[in-house]
Amino acid sequence: MNPVVVVHGGGASHISKDRKERVRQGIIRAATVGYNILREGGSAVDAVESAVAVLEDDPEFNAGCGSVLNVNGEVEMDASIMNGKDLSAGAVSAVRCVANPIKLARLVMEKTPHCFLTDQGAAKFAAAMGVPEVPGKQLVTERNIKRLEKEKHEKDAQKLDCQKNLGTVGAVALDCRGNVAYATSTGGIVNKMVGRVGDTPCIGSGGYADNDIGAISTTGHGESIMKVNLARLALFHVEQGKTLEEAADISLGYMKSRLKGLGGVILVSKAGDWAVKWTSASMPWAAVKNCKLHSGIDLDDTSVTDLP
């Protein structure tokens, strides 16, 4: 198989001009890291984990360092990962003092009999696994402090919720052995209640991977995504014979018409086809196949370059 990796940086209602280039470079960097792993014979799971970790380490994205803040001004992060070879999966939620929640989610997948650990249990497991604890303040950025202050002062913040707070990062990949995987990570939504968990760590909502179909990672309004099981819904349409683009359009359209929820998806099929679709204003993304790097942020904004 020709390996493929696709990465997204979350749906967005607006990305300022001064941030756009930094966001674009961050996405391209993550996709390149993931693809280089695949090109050297690495697994799809390794590729998606590494690509997402790059974005967690980049303060421009709502995951890891750069996560948005809850009502108390604290970071609470969610992540999940899945191996399409055997449907093994790992997820964590309400994680506070870990630099890379996606790495902790993979440890849950590979080192426990469970799929999902949360909050204090996830923290104890991280400590037991030797995952370094980082000070919570280290994950907080000045931009997100200002975002929280702005959100608290805005009227009708809850009503705007479906249209805003769409930031998540994710990756899907197909490796040379025909295995697929996905990984998704987020800081959640600005000004959320303490303990709020969205779609990102929920298998079938924040993502899904099955070698018999393909892999998908989602982004968008978490409560809407959970209500329609967006990831599994889109792959169901692929199973029914729809193209990746058709499956994405149908499932995103259903979520928008039923719930007014906006979002985006990245997909890769078992045959190595890939697609990116979104209903939010924009979604930073990058995809690499056959050493050709495709990337974009807005609907009519796609560039193609050759990787060395």
Rank of each mutant, 00 (worst) to 15 (best):
C65A: 12
L174S: 02
V304A: 11
A99Y: 01
G207N: 02
V238C: 11
S205T: 06
A47Y: 05
R258K: 13
R177F: 09
E246S: 10
V98L: 01
T302M: 15
V194H: 14
D78Y: 00
H294Q: 14
D306F: 10
S16W: 08
I102G: 00
K260Q: 15
N144P: 01
R22A: 12
H237K: 11
C162H: 13
M193K: 06
I189G: 08
C202L: 15
A30S: 06
F61D: 04
A127S: 08
D301L: 08
A94R: 09
D212Q: 14
C97I: 09
V134E: 05
R196M: 04
A31T: 06
M77H: 04
T218R: 07
L299Y: 15
T302N: 03
W285F: 13
D57N: 14
E49W: 05
A99S: 06
E110W: 07
G204T: 13
R29N: 11
Y182H: 09
E60S: 11
V172H: 08
A173H: 07
G222W: 01
P132K: 11
L259N: 08
H114D: 02
S93Y: 10
G66C: 01
Y208T: 12
G264E: 03
E151H: 11
V7Q: 00
R29S: 10
V276S: 11
A171S: 14
V33E: 09
N179W: 08
A286C: 07
L235G: 00
L262D: 04
K124D: 10
G178F: 05
E133L: 12
E245P: 09
C65Y: 12
A248L: 06
N211E: 03
A44G: 01
V6H: 01
A181S: 10
A47T: 03
G204V: 08
K227D: 13
P101Q: 01
S50H: 02
I213Y: 11
V92A: 04
V71I: 07
L252W: 06
K277A: 15
M109L: 05
N100Q: 12
G34R: 03
A128I: 07
G263A: 10
R106F: 00
K152L: 14
C65I: 15
S93G: 12
I225W: 07
V140P: 08
S185P: 09
K20N: 09
D18Q: 15
Y35I: 02
K164P: 00
K164H: 05
A248I: 10
V4T: 13
H221V: 05
S50W: 00
K270L: 09
G64W: 00
D161T: 11
N62Q: 06
A234T: 13
L166M: 11
A89G: 07
D298C: 12
N211D: 09
P132R: 00
R19N: 03
N290S: 12
N36L: 13
K111A: 14
A12I: 11
E60D: 14
A234L: 07
L69Y: 00
